[in-house]
Write a protein that binds this DNA or RNA. Structure first.
Lengths: 211, 211
DNA sequence: GCCAATACGGTACATCTGTACCACTAGTAC
DNA sequence: GTACTAGTGGTACAGATGTACCGTATTGGC
């Protein structure tokens, strides 16, 4: 759930490609980045060539030249976005392996993610896009499946999936509510479901700590 | 999560209002119903006056006459939709009070909801719409808050919220996956989190049954 | 049976969007 | 320096959409 890469990946485009300068790869990346940046702002539905062109600081023609159509541009932007979430998994994996899978560590990861409202909106938009276009479903699924695969060995499939569902549910909640759920509440929720995991059930005399 | 009212509320319009017949209230309802019916089919973004008019069997002019603009029509349709979810809460409440809050009863309710792909898509669209228009946020929130209020007294706030988050997460999952999570898995997930509830913790010697 | 009021259907128009196109300009090889 | 290639910017156009409008049809009262 770590989002340290965000500021690098989703930062405002800054200096656009110099006008008229020949730099196909750079320009193409600029366009994809601008689209990825706009998706959480205006939503997938209102993403247009002209909007992307303006944000990227390139001409309208450039946004149509490098992509067969707008759908392709959308997909590439969503793919770029999913790579950010991908890095989240890696960071989460590292942290959970270091700190162990406790209510506190899960809460810390989730809270960090929820605090990034852009990432929250992106996740929701990705789900909606996957609804409309099945090709995007792997992108929408991959994040959750990665966490499930990470947690299953130690927590069992049910608790692992439950934790991911809680994270997804919290994402939905955060996208609709200005104030996300409190960290205390999240920690208690994780503590509750961890109480049902094989590992903690085996040592049920020592219930998960809820300081 | 019960959806018995769906077939009545979201059924195809069937016989449209007779052409040219004066019936303002009926025609207005017909239009709202057609819009509510179309939202899960095409998504909020592609809902147009002409599409609604065609589905409702009325003229284009009628869809603009009764609503200040398309946004108003969308909102009314979403309100209509949220009333269906509202009835779900009532049915869920009745069932949980009758059967008690067990992994099996929660799974049964959730599975019924998830099987109705239209309702699943509606829920997601509602969240996205609430993102774009804060006025819709109470609609998007009300369903979950109702369940939390229902479950909190017996299960405590954390487990109650956790269950709703799991339900929301499962909704997201179902919207992007052709095959929803298995009932066995859902039951195990609910069993796990119920293991952490105050009530079951108090009788932790008698863990929640998972037949 | 006739008339005023209202509802309705269809058309018209301005705007927006995706996309194709073309003249121009920046790079590159000689 | 010159000519060629390819990237770029701006324009043009067809289609779709929100919305206004107007003639016509329907209704209820006399």
């Amino acid at each position: 759930m770590n989002t340290e890469q965000r500021s690098e990946k989703l930062a405002p485009i800054g200096e656009a490609v110099p006008a008229g300068r020949h730099d196909p790869e750079g320009r193409r990346r600029q366009i994809v980045r601008a689209a990825a940046e706009l998706i959480p702002e205006v939503g997938l539905a209102k993403l247009t060539h002209r909007l992307v062109a303006h944000r990227a600081g390139v001409s309208l023609g450039s946004t149509t030249r490098y992509f067969a159509n707008l759908d392709e541009l959308r997909k590439e932007a969503l793919t770029e976005i999913s790579e950010i979430l991908e890095q989240d998994i890696a960071t989460t994996r590292a942290r959970l392996e270091a700190d162990g899978c406790t209510p506190e560590s899960l809460t810390a990861d989730l809270a960090e993610f929820l605090a990034e409202h852009e990432l929250v909106r992106i996740s929701i938009e990705l789900v909606v896009a996957a609804n409309a276009d099945p090709i995007l479903r792997p992108l929408a699924n991959h994040w959750g499946e990665g966490i499930v695969a990470l947690l299953s060995p130690t927590l069992g499939p049910a608790v692992a999936r439950g934790i991911v569902l809680i994270m997804d549910g919290a994402t939905m909640h955060a996208s609709v509510n200005a104030h996300p759920l409190s960290n205390d509440l999240l920690r208690d929720i994780f503590a509750a479901i961890l109480a049902g995991s094989p590992g903690t059930l085996a040592t049920s005399a020592d219930p998960p700590r809820t300081p």
